[in-house]
Computed example of a mutant assay.
Amino acid sequence: MHPVPGPYRPPAPGPFRPVSPPTVEPASEATVEGGGSGHPAVDAVIQALANAADLPPRDQIAEYEAAHSTLQETLATIDQS
């Protein structure tokens, strides 16, 4: 006969380790000659993301969502041409 297991007990949590926020670095290899991506909307998004790094986290979320939306619209426009 097999023993009946007891109630599930999750393991004790480990020590808290804060996570550093990601840093936004310019993509030097992906830029065209003279700097930038070659597309004004994309360059504006890159700059906005760099500026967002200094904002409080709740404000960063809004900037990231706006950047995502702009990049989606830009890609849709490129796909249509």
Rank of each mutant, 00 (worst) to 15 (best):
P26F: 10
H2R: 06
F16G: 06
G38F: 06
I46G: 10
A66D: 07
V45D: 02
S81D: 10
A48R: 14
R9Q: 03
N51P: 00
A41Q: 13
S81P: 03
S69D: 09
F16V: 12
F16N: 07
S37W: 00
R17C: 05
E25M: 12
Q60A: 03
P11S: 09
H2K: 06
A76W: 05
V45Y: 01
V32L: 13
P26N: 11
Y8G: 01
P5W: 05
E33D: 12
T70F: 01
A62E: 12
H39T: 09
P11W: 03
P13N: 01
P57E: 03
H68S: 09
A66R: 13
Y8V: 05
Q60D: 08
P18H: 06
T77F: 04
G35T: 02
S20E: 15
Q80T: 02
P5R: 03
M1Q: 09
V4M: 07
T23Q: 14
V24W: 01
P7Y: 00
P3K: 07
E29A: 14
P15D: 03
A27N: 13
A62G: 15
T31M: 10
V32C: 09
E29K: 04
T31F: 15
P40W: 00
Y8N: 05
S20T: 13
H68N: 06
P26V: 08
A44C: 02
A41S: 10
G6P: 08
G14T: 03
P7Q: 09
S69R: 11
P22Q: 04
S28V: 15
A50F: 12
L55Q: 12
S81F: 00
D43P: 03
A62P: 02
I61T: 10
P18S: 11
T31A: 15
H2F: 11
P26L: 14
Q60G: 06
H39K: 08
R17W: 09
E73D: 15
S81H: 09
V24T: 09
V45K: 02
D79Y: 10
G14V: 07
T74M: 12
P15S: 05
A48Q: 09
N51S: 14
